[in-house]
């Protein structure tokens, strides 16, 4: 009964969703003429290169124009990690070794993971270092690095993560982000002022775009540490013995 009610309601919602989509035809140019800056998108597309000398407009928006938002986003991730830790917190008995309950992997998986891990990490680092030039950035690179750690965590039963190191990396990265923002406040006048620090440079150079690459590198490290932390917490739960 409830099922059919739900389906009925959802069909009505779907009907109105379709009607709504009729108002936004697929592929129509809603940005408008870039030069007259009539929309936000046009403004970003026009001003990103001259004002920030960042090639990737999405990066410029995420890190610079909406930098506050990203700072909040990183905070949400941090809170999620903390919340996860506190929800799944288990008091360790005295002298009990921290141990993941996993089956021992085969030698092939172990060697393969070890072989792959540096390349995955390198890819992740590449992605967030080139965040302002190519697709990708801190979040993507951090996630890639976390998958590398995931590989190691799954392959090696007793793979030890330095929790102190994770915490340090996360904290330092967060402080860097906020510190750059405050530095901009001191020198340039606004929080997260772009050209406060190394200068804008030329578009498509590796060192260009002011503080954007630095922030994205910090974000990359932070996200990598946080996501790895999430995985580590989830993997170290003892399943019920039944």
């Amino acid at each position: 009964m409830k099922k059919y009610l739900a389906i009925f309601l959802l069909l009505i919602v779907g009907f109105y969703l379709i009607q709504a989509f009729n108002l936004v035809p697929f592929g129509a140019n809603r940005v408008g003429n870039i030069d007259d800056e009539s929309t936000v998108g046009a403004y970003y597309l026009k001003n990103t290169v001259p004002k920030t000398s960042v090639a990737n407009v999405v990066t410029a928006i995420v890190v610079n124009y909406r930098g506050f938002d990203t700072l909040g986003e990183v905070t949400v991730l941090f809170l999620a990690t903390t919340g996860l830790g506190s929800i799944l917190f288990r008091k360790r008995k005295h002298g009990e070794e921290e141990e993941r309950v996993l089956k021992e992997s085969s030698q092939l998986v172990k060697i393969g993971s070890r072989l792959l891990f540096p390349f995955i990490a390198l890819l992740g680092i590449y992605v967030f270092i080139h965040g302002h030039l190519t697709p990708g950035g801190g979040f993507q690179g951090g996630a890639i690095i976390a998958t590398g750690f995931l590989l190691m965590l799954v392959a090696y039963k007793n793979y030890k993560l330095g929790h102190g190191a994770l915490t340090w990396i996360e904290s330092l990265a967060g402080i860097t982000f906020a510190g750059i923002g405050i530095w901009g406040l001191i020198t340039g006048g606004t929080f997260l002022e772009n050209n406060a620090f190394p200068g804008l440079g030329n578009v498509n150079d590796l060192i260009s775009g002011g503080v954007i690459p630095i922030i994205y590198i910090a974000v990359g490290f932070k996200v990598a540490a946080e996501l790895t932390g999430v995985l580590d917490i989830l993997l170290s739960i003892k399943p019920n013995k039944n």
């Binding site: 990066t59 990708g136 950035g137 993507q140 998958t147 995985l231």
Partner: peptide
């Protein structure tokens, strides 16, 4: 949207699936 694609690939495909499996 290559940026979004990359993010979805790394987070959606790999990490989300993994935490679901762990759960």
């Amino acid at each position: 949207a290559p940026d979004v694609a990359l993010t979805e690939a790394a987070i959606g495909v790999a990490l989300t699936t993994v935490i679901f499996v762990i759960t």
